[in-house]
């Protein structure tokens, strides 16, 4: 799920860098490292552990294929959200720099997609669930939610950037199911390790940290909206004007072949919610393109925002019920 630089536009990249910097700064403050210096070597060494753990593949039962641990949720459970977010940022930075796994401009996107949702959405969810159910259920649900949000975020960031031609529906229908599978595997793997650790060394068993601050959610939301607005402004000069785009058939979408696809498309059209970002219209109607991108940018941000808020809403609703 690491995004490459070629997928994103500078505006989206910078907006996500900004959001990452904000959340990292906030995490650093909340972590209050002066009070617990011991955490520094622990975070450093656990970062290296993630690399090692990713090297060790396990067989996925009943499929004949193998998978490996992503490690985000595990870090959050072991370190708490703030330290885990910072540790993951460092891991992703090293991956981008050393292995060109994920771009440098896309670094902010990757930290948000893989770190933010895991630490600040999936982990609080895990905390809620673990009180009522068991480790397995909690990890799987948390990992799935985190990865679904991350995957959707990839879609939104890619479309907002408008550097590649990918129809929203097709891209989403491609990303989400794949990451559902990855999420389930990640959840099982995380639960396996956590239950081993709790059994073998109970004193290490994860401490549940103080309740999450709402600020973080707002911050991420803000970043996404700003990203949406910025990118639509940026793309008000649509790509490739001087190339004089010439239409032959008039639609740039792969014609849908499946029934589900058709249904989705009809739904999408009737709601006029998310017209394809790169809605290519005739050269004359550039104004419409503008509005289209802006709207889809903001709606995309809104959907992610709702998803971000979901755990808090659930929590509140639970408390009241």
């Amino acid at each position: 799920m690491h995004m490459a630089d070629a997928l994103i536009s500078p505006t989206v990249g910078m907006a996500m860098w900004g959001a990452t910097a904000g959340i990292a700064g906030y995490s650093l403050k909340k972590l209050n490292i002066e009070a617990d210096e011991k955490k520094l070597p622990l975070m450093g060494v656990l970062g290296a552990f993630v690399f090692a753990a990713q090297m060790i593949n396990f067989a996925i039962p009943g499929t004949g294929s193998s998978g490996h641990l992503g490690g985000g949720l595990l870090l959050a459970v072991l370190l708490g959200p703030y330290a885990a977010f910072l540790t993951l940022s460092v891991v992703l930075f090293i991956q981008a720099l050393f292995f060109a796994d994920g771009g440098l401009l896309a670094f902010g996107c990757n930290v948000l997609n893989l770190g933010f949702y895991t630490c600040f959405i999936a982990y609080p969810l895990y905390k809620q669930l673990i009180r009522r159910t068991n480790i397995w259920f909690a990890s799987i649900i948390a990992a799935v939610v985190g990865l679904q949000l991350g995957a959707f975020s990839v879609v939104v960031q890619t479309l907002l950037s408008g550097k590649v031609e990918l129809p929203f529906t097709t891209f989403t229908l491609f990303m989400q199911p794949i990451h559902l599978a990855i999420g389930i595997v990640e959840g099982i793997a995380t639960a396996t390790v956590i239950s081993f650790v709790t059994k073998t060394k109970p004193e290490l068993s994860p401490t549940i940290e103080a309740p999450m601050n709402r600020l973080i959610g707002t911050l991420g939301l803000l970043a996404l909206i700003i990203g949406g607005i910025f990118s639509s402004i940026a793309s008000s000069k649509p790509d490739g004007l001087e190339w004089s785009i010439f239409h032959t058939i008039g639609t740039d979408e792969l014609h849908a072949t499946t029934a589900i696809h058709h249904a989705f498309e009809r739904l999408q059209q009737s709601l006029a919610l998310l017209p394809d970002y790169n809605l290519k219209s005739g050269g004359a109607s550039i104004g419409w393109l503008d509005i289209g991108t802006s709207i889809s940018g903001i709606i995309g941000a809104f959907i992610v925002a709702v998803a971000i808020m979901a755990p808090y809403i659930i929590k509140k609703w639970r408390r009241e019920a």
């Binding site: 060494v45 552990f49 753990a53 067989a59 039962p61 072991l78 099982i188 793997a189 060394k201």
Partner: peptide, 22 residues
């Protein structure tokens, strides 16, 4: 590939050693 149950204790051990090293 490594059986999941074994994998858990393998990576779990690695993790415990990581804590010791930290």
């Amino acid at each position: 590939a490594i059986k999941l149950s074994v994998w858990g204790s393998l990576v779990g051990h690695l993790l415990l050693r990581t804590f010791d090293r930290a």
